[in-house]
Design a protein around this nucleic acid. Structure first.
Lengths: 299, 299
DNA sequence: TTGCGTTACGACTCTCGTAAGGATG
DNA sequence: CATCCTTACGAGAGTCGTAACGCAA
């Protein structure tokens, strides 16, 4: 048994049990991985994969069990390397932030700017995706931290810190009739609504507010992106419901913002990272800056 | 980085950072381990050990951190091997039971006999030690299961299962005057007592009963071993307090047993093993037999 | 001197890449 | 016939053991 063989198992798992692709990922020829896999299986005495002819089709029971331990080992190995780099103050690492459009645009800019000036050598990757997928990215170790509002509740493999509280607002064109009415869920339910896609930026809180009131929401247009929503609000397509932070009094001077804090329960944006993952010091710094930024916004 | 280097770190840790002894344990010459250690430190870029001259004296901060990950890896590696062996029904393993004299004598014989007849190929090691040390043996991976009453409470690295409940009895020679008195803690406190050593076989429960009643226990003789205690009771040295299971009506016909269940709170004997440790099927079988045996005694 | 660690060098083992070949759809 | 996996063989990298040396109690 050696670390390369265990790494191979991980890569095989990732590539859908395709030896050729695994070989490519590991920068060796295909015959090498074939051999190593056989050597390992021979050493253990049992096959780790079910085969159809020569192709690998699935893990055996033993394979499943062993894969869990292999993941532990690969994780720990990674941690050792990151720890050593961190200790050397090797500032050639990378910071991979998985987040949604809204956070990337309104929360992250300042923390990222600060981070950049403090750690100019670190490459920053910003992965934008759906909240659901952000968690997968963490688990698949394709991201170091995830920042989002939805879907980050109970996951015992993650450490989750609340970052800031916010609520939704309604935005309308300046001349919209709604401005003169007393705002209520019922009034809103009568309007065509433009808001976030399901699973994004507090959409669940919006849904919940209306469902609890026995009302049906008429979502004309859903987008992941506050700017898209505002654009279509400007076109007169209806009332936008967006995060309060996404309204800029200067840029959005042509729109009226109506507070919905009393109608729709607030949302909490959280920061998450893998428990078993060693967090290098620069990454810690970023998380702390994020928390500070969140605190400032919450006030 | 390779698995042998990580294994070396573990062995170094165990041998008190002595390269020569580590080399011996790993069945290679000393120069080989010296080289491997240097290669590894060079690869990481920082030393893992503080040195005085050429001798290793302690772990560096980085070394400490990395050692934790190394332990994880070595544990997982071990698990993989055990899993594979277990899957092959390779019945050449070993079962290392850490326990105290009392359990070894009164609880274990039947489960061990059953185990032996079902798995004749498995070597059984019975390590007898103090309850405190039993836990160390588990943590140091020198035992697979520990069976005892004391000191097994809160340890989040262990899985602890209650096995059976029991209580203490007092034993006296047949002609002892105490037999005719109504038994109470106060009466006992007036007698010279023979019982278990501190930290053994429910001694803590005995202490607690007397302390709670504001009484002082006069322990004339303490032993780890019920038989020793009975021997000295026979010599008229005082009243013995032993586990109820340690009294055999036939063998101990010359002694009177007086139930103390109403005076001293019962004790629970538990089975413990490492959470992170893979338990092979034969070991599971043994644990289940133990639990069954415990249930039978509890009734 | 003995114990412990380091360094140099040749022998050996292990693993890789090349290349040829078999199976499968 | 294209894809995927296996097997044979020679070249090269890596590791070990021997052995000689440095240092301290």
């Amino acid at each position: 048994m050696n670390l390369n063989q265990l790494e191979l198992l991980r890569v095989l798992h990732e590539t859908g049990l395709n030896l050729s692709k695994a070989a490519e990922k590991m920068h060796v020829v295909q015959s090498a991985v074939s051999r190593q896999l056989h050597l390992f299986e021979t050493e253990l005495g049992s096959p780790l994969f079910e085969r159809q002819g020569k192709k690998l089709v699935s893990l055996t029971v033993l394979g499943e069990r062993i894969m869990a331990e292999v993941d532990l080992i690969n994780q720990a190995k990674r941690n050792i390397q990151i720890m050593a780099d961190d200790y050397l103050e090797n500032r050639n690492g990378e910071l991979r932030i998985a987040t949604t459009h809204t956070q990337a645009k309104y929360l992250l800019p300042e923390p990222v700017r600060k981070f950049r000036s403090k750690f100019p050598g670190i490459k920053i990757y910003m992965v934008q995706s759906s909240p659901e997928n952000l968690i997968n990215l963490l688990h698949q170790q394709q991201a170091d931290v995830a920042v989002c509002t939805e879907k980050l509740d109970t996951d015992d493999k993650l450490i989750i810190s609340p970052c800031y509280k916010w609520h939704h607002i309604a935005v309308t064109p300046k001349d919209h009739p709604l401005i003169n009415e007393k705002l209520s869920l019922k009034v809103l339910a009568g309007q065509p609504i433009l808001t976030y896609n399901t699973g994004f930026t507090g959409r669940s809180a919006i849904e919940k507010a209306f469902t609890d009131a026995g009302l049906q929401l008429d979502v004309t247009l859903a987008a992941t992106d506050s700017d898209i929503i505002k654009t279509y609000v400007r076109l007169g397509m209806g009332v936008g419901i967006i995060a309060a932070t996404a309204y800029d009094p200067d840029i959005d001077a042509d729109l009226t913002a109506l507070d919905l804090g009393h109608l729709i329960s607030g949302s909490v944006t959280k920061i998450a990272y893998l428990k078993q993952h060693y967090i290098p010091s620069y990454c810690r710094y970023f998380i702390e800056e994020l928390l500070k930024a969140g605190e400032a916004i919450s006030l």
